[in-house]
Write a protein that binds this DNA or RNA. Structure first.
Lengths: 258, 258
DNA sequence: AGTGGTCAAATGTACGGACAAATGCTAAGT
DNA sequence: ACTTAGCATTTGTCCGTACATTTGACCACT
């Protein structure tokens, strides 16, 4: 199984291809949980890449929580990722603010709206506030199952940002930071139970009334003005938000993510 | 090897020393938010290390959310640490519990169980593992509406803990730490969508099939052994899990969860 | 004045090599 | 039988080099 499909044709970095290959093997069960992976040098040989590339790929799998590595022992599979559901792991402070990386947004519609009472309550703003709303679905692969319906509200003066959405996997708040000189000061993340309404069910490919995980992220700028709020609905079974906290042992007290 | 600034004596890896150096400079304000860091090659020169080491250090800062890097542009400071204030504010996972202090657990039943395949998957253990399970509901006031159904799994040898549950509002993991000399090393919190099954609906006072927020907390001890897992179901509308993160500027710096 | 091309600078990817440190096993020694 | 020393294996750290890709700025040309 030498896998020559790490060809040159794609512009995709080799370490990413290798990582996806390995993830696929774990998902398919060719590499099962508890099993020890081939050593790094062995992987170099069988995939025809340098050790640097192998280690970069393994680092990725480690960040995803799929493997653990131990010096002198080896690399062991610790979790299997199921194909249709996505687990967002938060293991470092930087990941707390983000949407799932390497997933793509597909814009469905966009336009200016005025917040009614229900929406205002959801967004944490006053009624009749004007927002520019971008409706979109988020999927892991183009054409794959959607893992979320997202309504992204940004200030009306930032409406132009919609042109850049979906083209890259860059988070919206980062685009706003770059293009409009915003600076994220605080992020508030709320998670609660909800359900998929009929108008969204079809695009998500689930039955209306399916339970969902609602995630609201509010991004506040330096002047304490909320400049972006995203409301995401994740159908049951397709998404898990996973937070991992470690007790700092060197500093004694305290907890930290990552 | 020149290596003047980063001493050679310490067994600490150089990239970590460099990372801590840079974190210190950011915290002290010698590198302020918005400022562009010296290029990688420049850092190589001034610290007398290879580019690989520099990049390894920068990667660490990136994971902490302190910097963002962009090809063709450079590395920009996006936050002034950090860990100090973060660990200061999240002194215990009590904040992660997020239950009002006055809420109480009411034990419904308890006994030893053997994990079947579904349960094992949920708890993150192997099949046929033995657990002592405490079923309970959590309510804000005695006789008030329940905000959660909780299945709390502890190691069989800790079964006695059930006597103390519900008498105080102390979290279970804290009771275990006190009575059985456990020490929580890491906590993993998973959140996903679920629904209330018929057998639980009545006690919770909602209709069967009501959407719910499922929260699984896994407490791992020093020896990497999971000694408690709690599975909670929160009916829609009664509970919101909220995280707030601050990105330090001049006041209220650091990251905080709360 | 605008447009487009070129170039330098910066990070990203990828190759190579070498040694260090941790682990588990085996064999020698008591 | 037990302990200890040594060895092979595996991941971690670190160095060097080269080229790719992206970006922004400068400059020549229309």
């Amino acid at each position: 199984m030498k896998n020559d499909r790490l060809g040159q044709m794609t512009p995709r970095p080799r370490y990413l291809q290798l990582a996806e290959d390995l993830i696929g093997e774990i998902r398919d069960g060719r590499l099962s949980v508890g099993q020890t992976l081939p050593g790094e040098f062995e992987l170099c040989e069988s995939y025809g890449v340098s050790r640097h590339t192998v280690r970069e790929a393994l680092r990725r799998l480690e960040e995803l929580g799929l493997i653990t590595r131990q010096r002198g022992v080896g690399t062991v599979v610790t979790a299997s990722d199921s194909r249709e559901s996505y687990v967002q792991k938060v293991r470092s402070p930087a990941q707390l603010m983000q949407y799932p990386p390497e997933s793509r947004l597909m814009v469905i519609s966009s336009g200016e709206v005025v917040a009614d009472r229900v929406t205002a309550r959801l967004l944490g703003c006053t009624s009749r506030t004007r927002w520019y709303r971008i409706r979109a679905i988020r999927q892991l692969r183009p054409g794959g199952a959607a893992i979320a319906w997202s309504d992204i509200y940004v200030l009306p003066e930032y409406a132009d940002i919609v042109a850049a959405v979906g083209r890259q996997s860059t988070p919206i708040y980062e685009l706003l930071e770059q293009r409009f000189d915003e600076r994220v000061a605080t992020v508030q993340v709320d998670l609660f139970a909800g359900l998929i309404t009929a108008d969204r069910a079809e695009l998500l490919g689930v039955a209306a009334g399916t339970p969902s995980l609602s995630v609201v992220r509010r991004y506040t700028g330096r002047n304490k003005r909320v400049f972006e709020v995203s409301v995401s609905e994740h159908p049951a079974g397709r998404y898990t938000y996973s937070l991992e906290l470690h007790r700092g042992w060197s500093s004694g007290e305290g907890w930290a993510a990552g």
